[in-house]
Simulated scan of single mutants.
Amino acid sequence: MLRGARVVATGSASSAAELRALGATPVTYGDGLVERVRAAAAATGPVTVAVDTVGTDEALDTSVALVADRTRVATIAGFARGAELGVRLLGSGPGADPGTQVRDAARAQLVELAGDGSIAVHVARTYPLESAADAHRDSRAGHAGGKLVLLP
């Protein structure tokens, strides 16, 4: 619970143990998601920030249903739906903020937190640079279980 944040993370039932190990309260996605997230967050108050990394209508609709201030909802994947809903678009999609300032501001802090063991990056698989196409195929298949890393 870095900086006092409490994280409620959505995922499949099979990912619950991993999400819990990362310090999040796991909630299974699917019908009734808004109610399940609201119930999971009830002990600490309302949901005040949402970050969508999937881009589904369910994720974005749930985010805007739970977070009163849409400027505190961001997506890195659902650019068309996010634009319709008036949430922050981050990344390289149409109309998105590339996040340069956010990354620049966070980089030193993240390096420090990784260095002191406060956060860890799970590497699912490494690839030699000449296998970049394989890494890309694996990333497009989804659910890699961690970061895919290209090595020189």
Results as ranks from 00 to 15, higher is better:
G95E: 06
A133Q: 11
T56C: 01
G145M: 07
T126G: 14
A24H: 12
S15H: 06
V49F: 14
M1K: 08
A108W: 01
G117E: 04
V73R: 10
A59F: 00
V37H: 01
G55Y: 04
A144Y: 02
S15L: 04
R107T: 14
L113R: 12
R125I: 00
L90K: 01
S118R: 15
T53K: 03
A50H: 13
S12Y: 05
S131C: 00
V47W: 08
A13K: 08
A9W: 08
R6S: 07
V102S: 03
L129F: 11
G91T: 02
R70I: 03
L129E: 00
A9G: 14
A24N: 10
P94M: 08
V51R: 01
A42T: 12
L150I: 12
G32V: 05
A105T: 03
A39E: 05
S131T: 02
T53R: 01
R137L: 15
L113I: 07
S14L: 04
G115V: 03
R20V: 04
H136C: 10
L60T: 13
Q101L: 12
L22T: 11
R70T: 13
D116P: 02
V123Q: 06
L19Q: 15
H122S: 06
V149L: 15
K147W: 11
V102G: 02
G55D: 06
D31C: 00
G99V: 04
A59G: 09
T48G: 12
H143P: 08
R6C: 05
A59P: 05
A105M: 02
L110P: 01
L89M: 06
S12H: 03
A50W: 14
A17W: 06
S63M: 02
G11R: 09
R81Q: 03
R70K: 12
H136W: 14
A105E: 10
A9S: 14
D57T: 13
D97Y: 13
G82R: 02
A13D: 12
D97F: 11
S118L: 04
L151C: 13
V47K: 14
A80Q: 05
G142R: 05
G95T: 08
A132R: 04
A9P: 13
A42L: 14
G117S: 14
A74I: 00
V7C: 01
S14Q: 06
A39D: 09
L19C: 13
D69W: 12
A133P: 03
Y29E: 06
A83D: 09
T48L: 13
S139Y: 15
G93V: 14
L113Q: 11
V37E: 01
A132Y: 02
G30I: 05
L129S: 00
L85V: 06
R137N: 04
G95S: 03
L90N: 04
V37Q: 01
G99S: 03
A43R: 15
R88Y: 09
Y127P: 02
S12R: 10
T10P: 08
L151K: 14
L113M: 11
A59D: 00
Q109K: 11
A135C: 12
D116I: 12
G32T: 05
V87D: 10
L89R: 07
L90M: 05
D31K: 09
P98I: 06
T100E: 14
I76A: 14
R107E: 07
T62P: 00
